[in-house]
Computed example of a mutant assay.
Amino acid sequence: MKPFTVNISEEVISDLKNRIQSTRWPGEPEGSDWHFGTSEKYLKNLTDYWLNEYDWKKYEEQLNQYPQYLADVDGIQIHFQHIKGKGKSSKPLILTHGWPDSFYRFHKIIHLLTDGDQSFDLIIPSIPGFGFSGKAAVSSEAVADLWVTLMTETLGYKKFYAAGGDVGMSVTKALASKYPDIVEAVHFTDIGYPMGQEDPNSMTEEEKNFAQFVQQWWYSEGAYAMIHSTKPQSLAYALNDSPVGLAAWILSFGNAGAPPELIEEAFGGKDELLTNIMIYWVTQTISSSMRMYKMDAIAQWGGSQPLQKTSVPAGLAVFPREAQFPREWAERFVNVVSFKKMESGGHFAALEVPQIFADELLSFFYSLE
């Protein structure tokens, strides 16, 4: 375990700008807006701002505001932030991000969760294959195994709490299922989706409605996940070579969770959106991050045993621009002790509505005492 500082060379930034300036724009159908994918009109405005106004060094300093480390965990380099809470009995809490975000997903809630009398020791790692961790892509269950080693052996916590959404949900769910004697409680903003393997006779009407919604969503918005789960390498060549292409692909997912006029707000702001894209660009991890979907697909369809429902106490917060899963769907997988419908926010709630998200984590985890 050694301290780490983000320090990207000027050569990388200069190369980025040259590539943006050399973009060959494909054109788009007149009036297509976002209906064919990422809007070229919007993307040209964003890349002009990226090229001429966005200040990476400012956000690099922000990334270095809190202590960061690199550690070898079972042969894989793991990057993580570790911020001690100021309360007398801070709870150790590991926060796991998803795709297409990064450890930066949680930067706005760090001070909200560490400054008060009720506080956490926050551990915010980069999933393997993402950001400044090693580029080894592994399954969600394998990440959970790494997190246990990181928390108990590297950092010395005997027990801990965990929260996550998106890919981070899968990791956190695996933590609770596989390590109920170590994980004290878990929190989720989503809990997985019906995949057509469920017995419809065992499903409530609310669950069936949710399944129909998910099926429609996959047909209209799920192309990214199908490509990541089947042919991620084919796409990786383009995204690793073109910053505008990388931005377009990430934006196409962000737009799936928010109307076009809210896409920047959904990521916490224009600069936050670009900082998240920059983390993928400067580390060249878009390829390895997408491969995680393939590893999860291999695990799911390769005959591995499904995770068992866990007895670990679980809190769930359903934000209005997330898939509106019913409580009984969540109860199939976790021990639901808190289920809340939130008033505002979406898929990246920690970036978009940080105070609301932080209050929810504090309220849930400290209610269990």
Rank of each mutant, 00 (worst) to 15 (best):
M1Y: 07
E28F: 07
E30F: 12
D33P: 02
W34S: 05
K41L: 13
N45T: 14
Y49H: 13
P67D: 11
K84C: 09
G85Y: 03
I94D: 00
I110P: 00
H111C: 08
D115W: 01
S119F: 00
P125M: 11
S133L: 10
G134F: 00
A142S: 14
T149L: 08
L150T: 04
M151D: 04
T154D: 08
K159R: 15
A162Q: 06
A162H: 01
G164M: 07
K173V: 08
D181R: 11
V183Q: 00
V186A: 15
H187K: 06
H187Y: 15
F188Q: 01
E198V: 05
N201E: 13
E205N: 14
E206S: 14
K208D: 01
N209L: 13
A211V: 13
A211M: 14
H228T: 04
A248Y: 07
A258P: 02
P259E: 12
I263W: 02
K270R: 15
T283E: 06
S288Q: 01
I298N: 12
Q300H: 14
T310N: 06
L316F: 11
A323M: 15
E328D: 14
W329R: 05
R332G: 10
S338Y: 15
E343F: 06
E343I: 09
G345F: 08
A349V: 14
V353P: 01
E360M: 01
L362F: 06
S367C: 09
E369C: 12
